[in-house]
C-alpha cells in the first residue's frame, strides 16, 4: 500500500539549525543504507527501469536544498553516492526541499505543480528527469515498506521510525496543509 494521499500546500523545510548540526556527520553510513535502499527499490519495482527506457544509465544529481549534502543516483547499474557538493559530470540535477523530494517519490505531490510554484529546480537533461519522474510516479513507491524490507526482523521498528519522521516532515496521509 503506497503512501499516496496528495498534498497541495507548501511543505516545511528542515530548520537551518538542524541542518547545521548534522553537517559534521560522516556520510558513509548514510550512503551504505541508501545504496541498499536503492537496490531494494529497483529489485522490487522492475517497471521503473522499463519506464526510464534509454535514460536508465543517466547520472542524476539530487540536491535537498535544506540539507548539507546531496545524492548522485544511477539506476542501471544501481549506484548511490552521498556527497557534500554535486560533481559536474552529471546528466541532470534536481533540487527541492527534502519534504518535497520525499513527497514526489511517493506520488504525494505533482512535479509540474512544484515547478510552477518554483519549489523544484531542474538543470541538464530535462528528458531524463521527466522519464525518472514518470517512472517513479507509476511505481507507487511505499518508502516505509521498502525500508522495512531492508531491515529484516527489525523492519517493523524501521517502518514506524521512518513513518514518524516523514509524517513530522510532510504531514500524515490526507492531512490538510
Amino acid at each position: 500500500m503506497s503512501h499516496s494521499s496528495a498534498v497541495s500546500g507548501p511543505l516545511p523545510t528542515i530548520p537551518p539549525i538542524l541542518a547545521l548540526a548534522i553537517r559534521p556527520l560522516p556520510l558513509f553510513p548514510l550512503q551504505l543504507v541508501l545504496s541498499g535502499f536503492l537496490q531494494n527499490i529497483l529489485r522490487r519495482n522492475p517497471g521503473l527501469l522499463d519506464r526510464l527506457g534509454e535514460h536508465r544509465r543517466a547520472r542524476f544529481g539530487i540536491k535537498p536544498v535544506d540539507l548539507p549534502f546531496a545524492f548522485v543516483v544511477e539506476a542501471a547499474p544501481p549506484r548511490l553516492l552521498v556527497v557534500r557538493e554535486l560533481p559536474q559530470n552529471l546528466d541532470a540535477r534536481v533540487s527541492a526541499s527534502l519534504a518535497n523530494l520525499l513527497a514526489l517519490v511517493e506520488g504525494r505531490v505533482d512535479g509540474d505543480a512544484l515547478m510552477f510554484s518554483r519549489q523544484l529546480g531542474i538543470e541538464g537533461d530535462v528528458e531524463a528527469v521527466l522519464a525518472l519522474r514518470n517512472a517513479i510516479d507509476d511505481a507507487g513507491l511505499d518508502l516505509a515498506g521498502e525500508l522495512a524490507s531492508l531491515f529484516g526482523p527489525l523492519g517493523g521498528p524501521a517502518r514506524r521510525s521512518f513513518e514518524f519522521a516523514r509524517d513530522r516532515l510532510t504531514g500524515s496521509p490526507g492531512e490538510p496543509r
Binding site: 499516496s4 496528495a6 497541495s8 513527497a103 506520488g107 505533482d110 509540474d112 505543480a113 510516479d137 507507487g140
Partner: peptide
C-alpha cells in the same frame, strides 16, 4: 495526461 498521480487524485 502528463501530470502525476497527486494532480489526478486531487
Amino acid at each position: 495526461r502528463q501530470r502525476g498521480r497527486a494532480y489526478i487524485e486531487s
